[in-house]
């Protein structure tokens, strides 16, 4: 299935900002994180279609997946 993956902050270093990517149906966010070579302990926030999610969630065809490191501000 096809989905859009967006990376932020230093997760972009040596990777990409946004890419359309192909994964088998039933893939979990954690598997995509591993596939991208990102340390899961560094992941702070995951959103699927602008909704808060987690590494355990399963993505679906056409989803917009955003992966952020632990960040803050204010």
């Amino acid at each position: 299935m096809q989905l859009t993956v967006k990376l932020f902050a230093f997760f972009r270093d040596g990777r990409f900002k946004e890419e359309g990517r192909e994964y088998p149906a039933g893939t979990k966010v954690g598997e995509i994180v591993a596939d991208l070579g990102i340390d899961p302990d560094e992941v702070g926030v995951v959103m699927i279609n602008s909704l808060q999610s987690s590494l355990k969630a399963t993505v679906a065809e056409g989803d917009n997946l955003a992966i952020f490191p632990v960040i803050g501000g204010g």
């Binding site: 967006k6 932020f8 902050a9 808060q52 952020f68 960040i71 501000g73 204010g74």
Partner: peptide, 12 residues
């Protein structure tokens, strides 16, 4: 800087 928030707040 704090401006790291633009993208995450936009995404939310």
């Amino acid at each position: 800087g704090t401006n790291v928030l633009v993208n995450i707040i936009n995404e939310s």
